[in-house]
């Protein structure tokens, strides 16, 4: 089978959009944090928490959307810890972020072991099912890819639009962007940089957790250890790739996911059979690094990213 044939398959693009969905949520969350001036390396762990919290809620009998809400709230709780430590206390965002990732991951695994002490295979839940949007889904190739997905995927795309509007069209978005560019100016307007940044980190972390929940509640239907598997770190690269803009970050996520879907399919071709499968698995990570190198030339980093703001200090 030719690569071109793969690219024209509807199932290929359906898979690509599905793979992109958790990345869109989490990268959008990271973007919100970074636009306010806070690098959130807790993303990997917060995705693990979201994946577990959402899944457990449904497993214990909660509704699917209730599970998404629980995932979001649990992500926000870790975001609050991250925000308080890095914003008013100004601790190293690298160290706190990695600490949050470790704390969130180990706490999740601890709770999993306590909740399900003697399971060999993780129990399944009734996950989100694809929701076909009639007429639109009849468009060849892109129809099924875009309009025969689970509701969470639609939510991811809606959020990209919503975040763009809020960031660029509302006073709230202006204040958030200003907190990441020129915090002193925000303070001069009588707004609190600390409050804006903590809120941004909380909301962003909530999105990351929903990204994790997508894995257990839409892409798969159970919770595995190691299931986030570096997706959080890739999202950090995606934000740089998208030069801190929601639309471009979405594009990056879809391109990345398309590449990921492609490597899985090429593995099954005669050409792919001769190449060790690890090469295919490496490709997404190497691609992310290359993307960072290419985009770094014209990246517009938020000026106050990783710069703590201490009132009264000049």
């Amino acid at each position: 089978m030719d690569i071109l044939d793969i690219l024209l398959q509807a199932s290929f693009w359906t898979a690509a959009i599905r793979i992109a969905s958790p990345l869109i949520f989490a990268a959008l969350g990271e973007l919100i944090c970074e636009r306010a001036g806070v690098l959130n390396l807790g993303i990997e762990g917060i995705m693990v928490v979201g994946a577990f919290a959402g899944w457990l809620t449904v497993y214990l009998g909660g509704g699917l959307w209730f599970g998404v809400a629980v995932a979001m709230l649990s992500g926000m709780a870790f975001g609050l810890v991250h925000g308080v430590l890095t914003v008013p206390f100004g601790l190293s965002q690298h160290v706190v972020g990695l600490g949050i990732t470790l704390l969130a991951t180990s706490l999740t695994y601890y709770c999993y072991r306590l909740a399900l002490p003697e399971v060999t295979s993780p129990p399944k839940i009734e996950a989100f099912q694809p929701l076909e949007i009639t007429i639109l889904s009849d468009i060849p190739v892109i129809g099924p890819a875009l309009f025969n997905q689970t509701p969470l995927t639609y939510l991811a795309f809606v959020l990209v639009v919503a975040v763009t509007l809020v960031l660029y069209r509302t006073p709230m978005g202006l204040a958030l962007r200003a907190a990441g560019e020129d915090p002193a100016a925000v303070e001069a307007q009588g707004l609190s940089v600390s409050a804006i940044r903590i809120c941004a980190v909380m909301v962003g972390s909530g999105f990351m957790a929903v990204g994790g929940a997508f894995l257990t509640m839409s892409a798969f239907n159970s919770f595995f250890f190691e299931m986030v598997n570096g997706r959080g770190w890739i999202c950090i690269a995606l934000v740089v790739f998208g030069s801190w803009k929601p639309g471009k970050t979405l594009l990056g996520a879809v391109l990345f996911a398309a590449f990921d879907a492609l490597q899985i399919r090429v593995q099954q071709t005669p050409l792919g059979a001769d190449i060790p499968y690890q090469i295919f698995l490496m490709a997404p990570y190497i691609l992310s690094i290359l993307a960072l190198v290419v985009m770094s030339r014209r990246a517009q980093v938020p000026a106050a990213l990783m710069v703590p703001f201490n009132k009264g200090e000049r």
Binding site: H94, W233, V240, I286, S288, I289, L292, V293, S296
Partner: peptide
């Protein structure tokens, strides 16, 4: 290229 080393070393 001033690429952030946190992400590259992680990846």
């Amino acid at each position: 290229f001033s690429v952030d080393e946190v992400v590259t070393t992680l990846l």
